[in-house]
Nucleic acid binder design. Structure first.
Lengths: 219, 219
DNA sequence: CTCCAATTGTCGGCTTGCCGACAGACCGCA
DNA sequence: TGCGGTCTGTCGGCAAGCCGACAATTGGAG
């Protein structure tokens, strides 16, 4: 079950250790919290791996935004896509231009499989997103998100599943394609129905996971 | 400007002529009008090229559908994506399983570039779609569609640009992510404003292309 | 501890677009 | 030339969710 919170499992980092020579193609870069890493207007295309921190991939149009994905340590991304990339916190990435990456590809053909894999996952992710936007209402999209987050980073306790989202209401809204207010509304509905509970600003306790599963199944 | 009506320019067909040996990996198949070519439940992944006819790539959920793309002669597609593929009319395609395609890739590395290109275009297309669904209302999405279609298959005449869509109202609705009724509504608004005119059921005359361009620019 | 800034909750009005229903138009076919 | 099936136009009611406004809460920084 692919998930917005994790873009790619292709473990490129291990490749670095296997072939240190290969690593020389990549140059490390640092970005401070909230700075722009890449904008679709730039000509250069890049391939990069996240070494630490968190990044946000998003679309912008007029004064609206939509978050496509969040990247964490180990995730791979290619700016084949006309989207913005922003550091959410202090972040270090290893960059390579697609040009030189292409050359590396030629020398080590098995790399192209990695490339195809990454693009494939990106594509999968987008289609998932389209499905959400085209077919599901906000409530259901939120449920999907919660289930995904739970599966991905949930810690099971006696009370239920604790999920450290690391995201505020607004952030969730951007990820789901709606407004802060609507998310707030729905989450509090869930809390009133005793399905959810707030641990602190950015972490939730899912008290009844099955209930959510069912909402997902039964239309 | 990428367009829903045309998925890929990667001219794989020419490769066939260049290397007839390569062609033996592909087996031709015929499909009758309205038959299902591929469903996401199948295990097998495929790569194929359209030789004649038209195909529709779509998502389905409960009793709704959403058309991701239409394919025509020369277009390449890979079922890396969990979507349905349906023949809109009598159609012939050349199929290859991704497995054997992978082997071919190994032998002819330059092919992987084609693969990356195809996936990249698919991705581009998806993101375009997400942008539409997330940011634009139906009217604007329709305008985008019309402009794209005009650029792609429009014939310029004294009256304006004639576009043979080959699609009915319902088909357009599925492509845009709305209902038949809403499309009908908006198109007739445009006709009343003298921006559009119906030639016959499936072809339109765009009388004022610039007006549409402007609607697109100015929010 | 206190205060400020940012985040979150809540409300009502308003718009978009869905849905069901039905009427009319069109097309191929016998 | 009439018939049946399909496609298209149009209406009214209705629900989802956006938006602006404002209040309440919270968490840090000093």
């Amino acid at each position: 079950m692919p998930n917005k919170m994790k873009l790619s499992d292709a473990d490129l980092l291990s490749l670095f250790h296997a072939d240190p020579d290969f690593q020389t193609n990549f140059t490390p870069r640092h970005y401070a919290r909230k700075t722009l890493v890449y904008s679709p207007f730039e000509e250069k295309n890049l391939v990069f791996v996240v070494r630490s921190g968190r990044l946000r991939i998003y679309l912008a149009y007029e004064d609206k935004e939509f978050t496509l994905a969040l990247l964490e340590k180990g995730d791979v991304f290619s700016t084949h896509t006309p989207a913005f990339v922003q550091a959410l916190e202090g972040t270090e990435i290893l960059v390579c231009s697609t040009a030189t990456f292409g050359q590396a590809l030629a020398r080590r053909p098995e790399l192209s499989l990695t490339m195809v894999k990454v693009l494939g996952e990106l594509l999968q992710n987008s289609i998932q997103t389209i499905e959400g936007l085209a077919f599901k209402d906000v409530r259901l999209r939120l449920v999907d998100f919660l289930l995904g987050a739970a599966a991905d980073r949930g810690r099971v306790t006696a009370e239920g599943t604790v999920v450290q989202l690391g995201l505020g209401t607004e952030d969730i809204a951007l990820l789901i394609g709606t407004t802060r207010q609507t998310i707030s509304q729905i989450i509090n509905d869930f809390i009133k129905s005793d399905l959810l509970q707030k641990i602190d600003r950015k972490t939730l306790l899912i008290k009844d996971l099955e209930a959510f599963q069912e909402m997902k199944e039964i239309s």
